[in-house]
């Protein structure tokens, strides 16, 4: 009798996993290893590749997407998804460029561009949280709508921005291009918020089990709405940064960017069904993606093959994270 009673207690007392094992199953570890491998492979391809300035310069091409991907990671951890930020970037950049061309002073045009990003975030938030519609399909709709509106505003022409506004990527802060600085600063800020504050932990709880989170007194609707607003405003900042980098704005600015953003989050080990993931993972994944993309450019790989590689990477990375999580669940 007593033997039967002690049985469960024996099972409970399974030894804790050793620290190295815990570290090994963390998804960021995989990203980090891939990153190191990527740097080695890149170094073999071309000696110029290992030049830190070259990598930083290449990163500016992806910095806008990477900045949005950081916020998108939080949305995905919260159990929702937003596919519209790339279209949001295009529309806010088009609104900004069109206004400044019409004679509105640039600071005002920038502010209106940012405000439009906020409005787009609000529309997503209202449809998803207010009306309880699934976020994937809502943001597919708004993706089409925002890019379509950008096309109406800009037509098929490209709108130039004034000379002095061009070149945010050429401003150096301590030898690092400004977009990269913004990306690193935002990553540190959001990393602290997500990992170290009650607010951040609440996002994980919502993503793990929203009903339970609500019963535990977490204002899930308010938090998720806030996240959609944050994506909206950050996407419009990224859009205007892109305008400054390219020097002109077309409606197809950032076309297909949603793939790269989701890819960065997935490669960093964010779990597509919510509740797991870290900013550090997305941070590393952004660098990994830059290394892979520039590596392919250095190796003279056709842009089309890059499309194939990016698409396959996305699928492989979700299979891998799903696999890792299903193993650690047991």
């Amino acid at each position: 009798m007593s033997a039967i009673e002690t049985q469960p207690a024996v099972q409970d007392a399974a030894p804790a996993r050793p620290r190295w094992q815990v570290l090994l199953v963390r998804p960021e570890t995989m990203t980090f290893v891939l990153l190191v491998l990527g740097i080695f492979a890149g170094g073999l391809l071309s000696p110029f590749f290992l030049d830190i300035n070259y990598i930083l310069k290449s990163f500016t091409l992806y910095a806008e997407f990477a900045i949005v991907a950081l916020v998108l990671t939080m949305v995905i951890i919260g159990g929702e998804i937003d596919l519209s930020p790339a279209a949001n970037m295009a529309l806010s950049a088009c609104i900004f460029a069109w206004l400044q061309q019409a004679g509105v002073p640039i600071p005002v045009a920038v502010l209106i561009g940012l405000a439009s990003g906020l409005v787009m975030g609000t529309i997503n938030g209202l449809m998803v949280i207010g009306l309880q519609l699934p976020s994937i399909i809502v943001t597919i709709g708004t993706l089409t709508l925002y890019r379509g509106l950008a096309q109406i505003i800009a037509g098929d022409k490209s709108i130039r921005v004034p000379e002095w506004f061009i070149g945010v990527d050429r401003i150096m802060v301590a030898g690092i291009p400004l977009p990269v600085v913004i990306f690193i600063a935002l990553a540190i800020g959001l990393g602290v918020v997500l990992g170290g504050t009650i607010f951040g932990r609440q996002i994980y709880q919502i993503g793990t089990n929203e009903v339970a989170a609500r019963h535990a007194g977490i204002r899930s609707a308010r938090i998720k709405f806030g996240l959609f607003l944050l994506v909206g405003i950050v996407a419009s900042i990224a859009g205007i940064m892109t305008a400054s980098r390219l020097g002109s704005v077309r409606y197809d600015l950032g076309l297909g960017g949603e793939l790269q953003m989701v890819l960065m989050a997935m490669l960093g080990g964010t779990y597509i069904f919510g509740g797991r993931g870290t900013i550090l993972g997305t941070f590393l994944a952004a660098w990994l993606l830059v290394i892979v993309s520039t590596g392919m450019i250095v190796a003279n790989v056709l842009p089309a093959v890059q499309l194939v590689v990016l698409g396959s990477l996305l699928i492989v990375s979700i299979i891998a994270t799903n696999f890792i999580y299903s193993r650690t669940q047991r």
């Binding site: 793939l259 989701v262 089309a304 499309l307």
Partner: peptide
């Protein structure tokens, strides 16, 4: 077979198949 969400998989293959067309 891998129990993945259709929307993400087909977002990936959207890019993958487009690349195939070019290749």
């Amino acid at each position: 077979l891998f129990r993945l969400p259709a929307i993400i998989v087909t977002l990936g293959t959207l890019s993958l198949y487009r690349g195939l067309t070019f290749i």
